[in-house]
């Protein structure tokens, strides 16, 4: 395959990763929670999309706002119902809680959908178009562009709206934010909701790109968490850069050494952490220095 072609694939894939990983990194930044359930949210959304598509034959992309909203509500409810009680016990216990959520969700999906691959195949599934020599399949194109649009929307929301500023304030200093009237619970449930929403949107995009079954959540957890470690925990620009790196390197590796593509990525993370323990754009916090 032509290298340019491979890179184009990688960039589109990287866009999808960026959307999903920014959700995880937002949750970590505001709540100090490592959301290991993001992969199961994603697969949940993808399988739900498949179900509606196969029942109604609806254009799957119409489900983007629906699944986004649904996952927002589910994420909000998980925060209010479960996380808020465990949060005071620190990140060690919240990660175990989210691990429990991920396993339980996979169990539900297993019972409902069974343990086999499902894929959504709209009419444009196999069509593609050409820019110069580069062939780009429609699903990849749509997913990549849509992911970037949603990500841009979230970014503008965080920058410009009052709620976004409240979130960023809360991420930096919870006590300080509380003093000026920002409820930590409200900010946190909003952040968790938005984080889950990215998985809702991503799930629809995932469904038209790849076949999905419940256990694929592990591939996604590992990829997304790998991205945020590489980018620097809590850094959205870092997550975006790392997503592009993963997308492109995965695309190159799967063109030449398909079996070893994921190994290559995780290996690279370990090597990079060796030289930059806090990731590419991660900041050393006061506590880190003290240790």
């Amino acid at each position: 395959m032509d290298l340019l072609q491979v890179i184009a694939f990688g960039v589109l894939l990287g866009g999808v990763y960026a959307l999903l990983a920014s959700g995880v990194t937002l949750i970590f930044g505001v709540l100090d929670v490592v959301n290991v359930a993001q992969g199961s949210f994603l697969v949940f959304s993808a399988l739900f999309t498949w179900q509606i598509w196969s029942l109604l034959g609806l254009e799957p992309l119409l489900l983007v706002p629906v699944m986004g909203l649904l996952m927002f509500v589910i994420g909000w409810a998980i925060y209010r119902g479960l996380l808020v009680r465990v949060a005071p016990q620190g990140p060690g216990m919240t990660v175990l809680l989210m691990f429990g959520v991920a396993i339980a969700m996979e169990g539900v999906l297993n019972i409902v959908f069974g343990n086999e691959f499902k894929s959504v195949t709209p009419p444009y599934f196999t069509s593609s178009f050409k820019i110069g020599e580069i062939v780009i399949p429609y699903p990849q194109m749509i997913s990549g562009v849509l992911a970037v649009v949603v990500l841009g929307g979230i970014y503008v929301y965080l920058r410009k709206s009052w709620a976004g500023r409240a979130l960023r304030a809360s991420a930096q200093n919870k006590d300080g934010a509380a003093l000026v009237g920002i409820s930590a619970t409200k900010a946190s449930s909003l952040a968790f909701g938005i984080g889950a929403m990215t998985a809702g949107v991503g799930g629809v995009l995932l469904a038209i790109m790849y076949p999905v079954y419940p256990a694929t959540q592990y591939d996604w957890i590992a990829r997304l968490l790998g991205i945020i470690v590489l980018g620097g925990m809590g850094s959205i620009p870092g997550a975006i850069i790392a997503s592009m790196l993963l997308g492109i390197s995965e695309s190159i590796a799967s063109a030449y050494v398909p079996q070893w593509a994921p190994v290559f990525f995780y290996g690279a993370i370990l090597v990079i952490l060796l030289f930059r323990p806090h990731g590419l754009l991660g900041e050393k916090t006061r506590e880190d220095v003290a240790a």
Binding site: P91, L225, V229, M233, G267, A291
Partner: peptide, 18 residues
């Protein structure tokens, strides 16, 4: 484990997958 970052828990998952 050289830093106090929460990346530890993530890397443990990645190492299992790897």
């Amino acid at each position: 484990l050289r830093t106090r970052s929460h990346s530890f828990v993530i890397i443990t998952i990645a190492v299992l997958l790897l």
